[in-house]
Design a protein around this nucleic acid. Structure first.
Length: 875
DNA sequence: TTAGGGTTAG
């Protein structure tokens, strides 16, 4: 019976008949009669549809008219595409009714058979059928369903398709394939064609607008909706709400929601989920409570979003309550319910509950495993995470890209290089390396484990990189002290012009500028930050302040620090550290007090900065006071770094024996930096005997660190114990160690000029040496005798003086004076501590040339002006 | 309308 109804209601039969009769030059009355006859025959035939010979009962004239179409349609109804196409192949044009072609195309569309669909189109075109809106629609549908979206789109170019349905279907498919612009393009063509939209059109277009982040496009469509009256349609309003939430226009979404005449569970779910995914989890959860009061029934989607909200806001109590509620409903058996629940517990740090859900689940999927692994990783249980990763494979559940990134993240956080490498091997074996997330996670893992070579290999092998790939490698170089590599890669990023550096990029690269004292490059990046309005990002602002402070531009750092609208602990800490390294201890203390008044709770790092500032300014009483505040008021246990500051403070001011006792009384074992701080003190106060005792401890703790041997050699040299110097040098030689060569650099017009001691490779060498000789002569004229004991060479005084003259920082400063315009600050950086003679010469130079010299050595800043240094002897 | 993943500063 269904077949009968479908045949009678199909107008194609009647139309085909009419054309056939017109071709036979039949009259209008003939047509009417014939149509009636045929209709009645059709009914008969349909009733006896199983009777294959029934066609014989009609005349041969009629048979040629009806047979082919009917048989084709029968094939279509029976879903027999193969026979339909075979029959069509041997049919003549006038035997075929366009409506029959529509049926075949529909079947091709339903069977997703592009090959047959194309053959039908060839038949249509080969026989010169006029393609009207109906036939065109079916052609477009066939191509759309068969996945040839370009061919489908071409049909819309050639034929006017009147029904919105077909436009909607193609728009949806284009969007599904990720071609959102194509989808919007089609929508625009739909508008210019004058085709009327229906309510389904909006949901698709809004999805594309939100994926393209085209807020403007969506807003325009919103305007149209208001004018056209579609706004009252619940599904249209829901699409609009979802669009605003996906484009982070939470307020606009809320406004549409508030104005809705009728809200269903989807409207509420959208709002809850929208708040949660826009980082407003708590608001989402209070919305959930409102939903409960409104009497709207909660469904699985609601609960899933609520769990996600609880996870984000760490509201495990509400999550637990909803868990209890869920147990009473049928959706507690759903995978999604269990997985989000498990993830909620895992993110809230309640691993026992997460494990309980995991264990009780009847059907654990890759998602369940991944959430569990990520939970272990977050809690630092790297062993458990890696174990579960192995277990899931044994259970026959294949890890996917999500699992792999969770495990890699775990290896990265816990610096598990070997495990990370094994996961990398697994990735290669299972061909998951193509995924950009996986590659980025691999880079991050290698970078965090300090293996930049491997990180770089993954990065270079990536066929497609995104901004995160670049940021991760640049940040990795920066963090692993490959500042030059970080800057070169940053330059390459700018040259390639594929991506524009974002907030994270600049926050990654600024520490590299800071460590190189690359002032000009840093300033260039500052310009970029201002042009792109990145200064409002606190990470960026903090890095910028830190960069300027470390490049010696303390005043600029302070000006920018004052510009930071909402300062956090890091902002205060970088500024305090900046004052500290420039020897402004009192300013550092004042700032620390201010930060506490502003309600900032200091942490162990801010105390390191503060104590460092005290020690570098000789503020012993204040240093002790803050050390005690840290321990007793702030309940922060001192680490080696804090102890090192105190030792440094005591040692600089000459309290060497007190420092020694302090080290012995420490509750934690002293490391080389602590003994090293005391060794420095021994040098300042010329205590060779204690130095020898301390040096042995340092050498035992860090036998490979040449810096300490050099320090001890300097102590002997200053005491003119040349035999001891030789002995120590032999000791360095025996161990196969090489002294880290002193090196200084200065940036001139964006180019970094690097000097090592005795360097004569610079093109301006002659001028540099002449200048240094002139300065030295003037110094001697004024009664200054060169500090030859810093030369570390046991030779004639003249030779020593020449060696001193060739110290790298002197060469760099001289180039600075020769190249800089009047009044410009000369900024020099040295990898080791500045030598005493160079320090004196810098003071002299600043007076003689009336220029300001900022010298950053491995320990602190020296600001030379009018013959004085800001360090006031504490270095 | 609905689950799990990656990058930043002291």
């Amino acid at each position: 019976m269904a077949m009968l109804v479908s045949n009678l209601s199909s107008s194609s039969f009647c139309f085909s008949t009419s054309r056939r009769f017109r071709n036979q030059k039949g009259t209008a009355s003939d047509f009417r009669v014939r149509r009636d006859v045929i209709l009645s025959r059709a009914s008969l035939r349909t009733v006896s549809i199983e009777d294959r010979d029934c066609a014989d009962s009609i005349s041969s004239f009629d048979r040629s008219l009806t047979d082919t179409n009917t048989r084709l349609r029968r094939f279509c109804e029976a879903g027999n595409l193969e026979s339909a196409v075979k029959l069509l192949r041997v049919s003549r044009k006038w035997d075929i009714d366009p409506r029959t072609l529509c049926s075949i195309l529909q079947l091709c569309a339903d069977s997703r058979s592009l090959k047959d669909g194309k053959e039908v189109e060839s038949f249509i075109r080969g026989n010169g059928f006029a393609i009207d809106s109906n036939l065109g629609s079916k052609l477009a549908l066939m191509y759309t369903n068969c996945g040839d979206l370009e061919a489908a789109s071409r049909v819309f170019d050639r034929v006017r398709i009147e029904k919105a349905l077909f436009w909607n279907i193609l728009m949806n498919e284009l969007a599904k394939s990720g071609d959102f612009s194509g989808s919007i393009g089609l929508f625009k063509r739909m508008l210019t064609s004058g085709v009327e939209m229906d309510r389904y059109t909006f949901s698709c277009v809004f999805k594309s607008f939100s994926s393209l982040r085209s807020v403007h496009g969506g807003e325009q469509l919103h305007g149209y909706i208001l004018k056209s009256g579609f706004g009252d349609c619940n599904s249209v309003a829901n699409s609009l709400v979802a669009f605003y939430l996906k484009t982070q226009r939470v307020k606009s979404a809320r406004k549409v929601f508030d104005e809705m005449t009728e809200r269903d569970v989807i409207s509420w779910n959208s709002m809850i989920n929208g708040y949660v995914s826009n980082g407003l989890a708590e608001k989402g959860l209070s919305f959930f409570v409102e939903m409960l009061f409104s009497g709207t029934d909660v469904d699985l989607a609601t609960v899933v979003s609520v769990f996600a909200g609880c996870a984000d806001s760490r509201l495990v109590s509400l999550g637990r309550a909803v868990h209890g509620f869920g147990l009473k409903t049928c959706f507690s058996r759903e995978d999604r319910f269990c997985n989000t629940l498990l993830d909620m517990y895992s993110k809230c740090g309640d691993l026992d509950s997460a494990k309980a859900v995991f264990t009780e689940m009847s059907d654990r999927s890759v998602v369940s495993y991944t959430s569990m692994i990520a939970g272990y990783a977050r809690e630092g249980l790297a062993g458990e995470a890696v174990k579960l990763f192995a277990e899931m494979e044994e259970e026959g559940i294949s890890p996917d890209v999500y699992t792999v990134t969770a495990v890699l993240n775990c290896c990265a956080r816990n610096r598990l290089l070997e495990e990370g490498k094994r996961v990398h091997e697994w990735i290669k074996e299972n061909d998951l390396g193509f995924d950009i997330f996986v590659s980025n996670a691999l880079i991050d893992m290698y970078a965090k484990c300090g293996s930049m070579r491997e990180a770089e290999l993954v990065f270079s092998a990536m066929p497609v990189k995104d901004m995160i790939s670049w940021n991760t490698v640049i940040g990795g170089y920066s963090k692993n002290c490959y500042a030059n590599e970080a800057l070169s890669l940053f330059n390459l990023l700018l040259e390639e012009k594929k991506f524009s550096p974002d907030e994270r990029t600049v926050a990654c690269v600024l520490p590299a500028c800071a460590s190189l004292s690359a002032f000009d490059k840093g300033r260039e990046i500052h310009g970029y930050i201002m042009r792109n309005r990145y200064f409002t990002d606190r990470h960026v602002a903090n890095s910028l302040v830190d960069m300027y402070a470390k490049c010696g531009a303390l005043l600029l750092a302070r000006l920018l620090f004052d510009e930071i609208a909402s300062k956090d602990l890091v902002s205060w800490t970088v500024m305090i550290a900046g004052y500290g390294m420039h020897g402004f201890g009192k300013e550092a203390i004042a700032l620390f007090d201010q930060s506490r008044q502003a309600g900032i709770e200091p942490d162990e790092i801010s105390f390191v900065s503060l104590l460092y500032a005290c020690s570098h300014s000789g503020l012993v009483d204040e240093g002790w006071r803050f050390f005690n505040i840290m321990r007793h008021e702030c309940k922060i246990e001192p680490t080696v770094e804090h102890y090192a500051c105190i030792v440094d403070m005591l040692a600089r001011t000459g309290d060497l024996s007190k420092a020694y006792r302090f080290i012995e009384d420490m509750p934690i074992p002293a490391d080389a930096t602590i003994w090293g701080a005391l060794l420095c003190g021994c040098r300042i106060h010329h205590d060779v005997k204690l130095a020898e005792k301390v040096a042995e401890k340092v050498f035992a703790l860090e036998p490979e660190n040449t810096g300490y041997y050099v320090l001890m050699a300097n102590i002997y040299a200053e005491a003119e114990k040349w035999e001891e110097v030789k002995r120590l040098r032999r000791r360095i030689g025996q161990r196969g160690l090489r002294k880290n060569p002193g090196c200084s650099w200065i940036e001139i017009k964006g180019r970094v000029n690097i000097f090592v001691a005795g360097d004569s490779s610079h093109p301006e060498t002659e001028k540099i040496e002449a200048l240094l000789r002139r300065v030295r002569a003037r110094m001697i004229e004024e009664g200054y005798s060169p500090q030859t004991k810093y030369a570390l060479i046991d030779a004639e005084e003249m030779e020593k003086e020449e060696a001193l003259c060739g110290h790298s920082e002197k060469l760099a400063m001289a180039l600075g004076i020769l190249s800089s315009g009047h009044g410009k600050i000369i900024r020099v950086t040295k990898n080791l501590r500045v030598c005493g003679d160079c320090h004196e010469m810098a003071k002299f130079m600043s007076r003689l040339t009336r220029s300001e010299i900022v010298l950053r050595d491995s320990n602190r800043f020296h600001q030379f002006k009018d013959g004085q240094c800001s360090c006031r002897g504490f270095w």
